[in-house]
Nucleic acid binder design. Sequence first.
DNA 1: GCTTGACCTGGAGCGCGCTCCAACTTCTAC
DNA 2: GTAGAAGTTGGAGCGCGCTCCAGGTCAAGC
Lengths: 118, 118
Amino acid sequence: MDTLRYYERIGLIEPPVRDSGGRRSYSEEDLGWVGFLSCLRMTGMPIRLMCEYARLRHFGTSSATSRKEILLEQRTAVRERIAELQMCLSTLDYKIDNYEMVERRVAELTPLAQEATA
Amino acid sequence: MDTLRYYERIGLIEPPVRDSGGRRSYSEEDLGWVGFLSCLRMTGMPIRLMCEYARLRHFGTSSATSRKEILLEQRTAVRERIAELQMCLSTLDYKIDNYEMVERRVAELTPLAQEATA
DNA sequence: GCTTGACCTGGAGCGCGCTCCAACTTCTAC
DNA sequence: GTAGAAGTTGGAGCGCGCTCCAGGTCAAGC
C-alpha cells in the first residue's frame, strides 16, 4: 500500500482513478501492470530501470524494441543469477554434508564420554 | 578491500596477521572463510545472520548442529528463490515473445507505410 | 450524532551493506 | 633522497527501496 503510493510518486505506475471518496481504485489493467512490476522487482531489476521501462511504455509500439531489449538483458541477468545460486547451493550441500559427518563422529564419541562421566 | 575491513569491524572475519609494515596479510584459511562468506552473501543471507554463524564457529564442533541448521534454512531459501526466479523467467519469456510478435507485425506494416510516404 | 477505521497528504526516517574521506605511514622505484 | 602508489585509521556519507508518521478527510455501523 505504502509501496503502491511510492511507485506512483516515482512515476512507476499511473495515478489510478479515484472513487467518490477520493480513494484510489486500481483497475484490472493497473493490477496487471503492478503484478508485472513486482515480477521485475523479484528478479532484482533496480527501480530506476523499471522507471525507464515504464516511461517507454508511453510511446506504444514504437518503443517495443527498446523494451524488449531491457527484458532480454534482464533475462540474461536472471539466468546468470540462477546459475550463481546453483553454485552456492552445491557449496551449501557440501558444507551441510560436512556438518553431518561431524555430528556422526560426535555421536560415536558421546557414549564413551557418558561412560567416563558415569 | 574496504569491504574486508568492514567485515573485520563487525566481527565477521578475524583480524588477520600483519606484515612487517602493519599491512593485513590474509592466510589461506582467511581467504577460504572469506570465500565462503561471499557465497553466503550471494545467496542473500543477511549480514546479521552471517555474524551469528561466525560467532558459532568459535565454539567448535559443539555448535555444528546450530550451524548446520542455519545452512539448512538457507538452502531452503535458496531453492525457493531459484523457483521464484524461474517463474519470473517464464514471465519474461512470455513478454519477450509478445514484443517479438509486435515487431513482426510492425515489420509487415512498414513497407506499406513506406509506400504511403513515397 | 459519534466513534471507528481505512484511506488521504507531504515529508521524514530507516535499515542495509557497503563506500568514501582526510590525514597519516610505509614500501617501491627511480 | 624523493615522488608516488598503496596500504593504515576512525568516522562520516550514501544509494536503495521502502516504511512510518502526524494530521486530516471520508464512509459505514451503532
